[in-house]
């Protein structure tokens, strides 16, 4: 059933698995579970990192990697790409004040009222497909296709921490102030990356996210943010 998965060497200490049309985050989770059940791989693999369409399996530094590629290839037939029914996804709800610098320009560009634009962004359920760019910067899939817009031609030298933004098919939140070319819809006061927590990133691969406009009644208790 997983004939379409392929693994290729990626440098001296890693292997890249192409997920084709599968969700890379689901593939990464399944591979992580299979590695945990394999004593030899469990001691030699450092990390399984998803991207948009690929998963990188990274060996621990200094390990002997001679037979690792084969051992990883051997896992592929067992990969389960269905969502694991036993684990309900972790859900985080972020309260957003829609006051971003690009809110009105985007509404004008798309011929929408700002209310309609806010509704379009906040009614979707998002999922962290992968992280990158900066610690705790999550690429969220699930953005309404009408809001798929390219990045700014000229990135801003400074985007404030907590900025809620969109670019291409993704939404995200800037965990810390940084330069950035995504279009800014608003901001949240949530702390996205906290070094004092055992899990420093609030949004990590597989986490589901909902944005709630400030002042909107909060949903059911199980939907509340959990860090």
């Amino acid at each position: 059933m997983n004939a379409r998965l392929s693994v290729a060497r990626y440098g001296d200490h890693a292997w890249l698995i192409k997920a084709d049309n599968y969700r890379a985050v689901t593939l990464a989770e399944s591979i992580r579970r299979l590695i945990a059940d394999n004593a030899s791989l469990n001691t030699t693999i450092d990390e399984v990192v998803p991207g948009a369409r690929t998963v990188l399996v990274i060996a621990k530094p200094g390990t002997t990697t001679a037979n690792l590629g084969g051992a990883i290839a051997d896992l592929l037939p067992e990969v389960d790409l269905d969502d694991n029914p036993e684990t309900s996804p972790r859900m985080v709800r972020l309260e957003v004040t829609y006051d971003g610098a690009d809110l009105h320009p985007i509404a004008t560009e798309l011929g929408l009222s700002t209310e309609a634009l806010i509704r379009m962004h906040s009614e979707s359920i998002y999922e962290v497909a992968f992280c990158g760019f900066a610690p705790g910067f999550a690429y969220l899939t699930g953005l309404n296709p009408r809001l798929h817009l390219p990045r700014l031609n000229t990135p801003r030298p400074q985007v404030p921490a907590g900025s809620v933004a969109i670019a291409d098919s993704y939404s995200s939140v800037y965990p810390q102030a940084s330069p950035g070319g995504w279009r800014l819809l608003g901001h949240t006061n949530a702390t996205l990356f906290d070094l004092d927590k055992s899990e420093p990133a609030l949004l990590r691969p597989g986490t589901q996210v909902r944005f709630t406009p400030t002042g909107t009644p909060i949903g059911l208790p199980e939907d509340l943010a959990q860090a």
Partner: peptide, 12 residues
């Protein structure tokens, strides 16, 4: 030092 390992999936 020898680096910060095992947090690449969080963007570190």
């Amino acid at each position: 030092d020898r680096g910060r390992h095992s947090f690449r999936q969080l963007g570190v």
